[in-house]
């Protein structure tokens, strides 16, 4: 009998939870705020679903109820992607080591 592809996706999911568990425990506590903003940005990879939804209309009607929700989701996810990565970068740029020449 063939294995349902769902099982493979479930395996990826479960293993990723474990990867996430170990990776996040190794994050230094002083970077917990950037951790939150960057996880925010990467979870907006949901934009791939939004793009599929946005392009689901045919050439005569680009905007139907379904694709409008897709376009709105694209805008929301884009706010998060740009906002999340940029604010993370801004924060990380501030973390500096003690200057040696003091």
């Amino acid at each position: 009998m063939e294995i349902d592809p769902l099982i493979f996706r479930l395996s990826i999911f479960i293993l990723s939870i474990f990867v996430g568990y170990y990776v996040v425990w190794s994050v230094t506590p002083s970077l917990h705020t950037p951790l939150m903003s960057v996880t925010n940005a990467i979870s907006s990879v949901i934009i791939v679903g939004a793009i599929i939804a946005g392009l689901s209309g045919n050439s005569e009607s680009i905007f139907n109820t379904s694709s409008i929700f897709g376009f709105l989701a694209i805008a929301l996810a884009a706010i998060n992607i740009f906002g999340g990565f940029l604010v993370t970068q801004r924060m990380l740029a501030m973390y500096k080591k003690k200057k040696k020449d003091k």
Binding site: R9, I12, F13, G20, S43, I46, V48
Partner: peptide, 19 residues
Amino acid sequence: GFTLENTALIITGALVGSS
């Protein structure tokens, strides 16, 4: 991610969820 059968979303979801 499961609905769209998209691994990037599944992996990310799991990472963010456990984080």
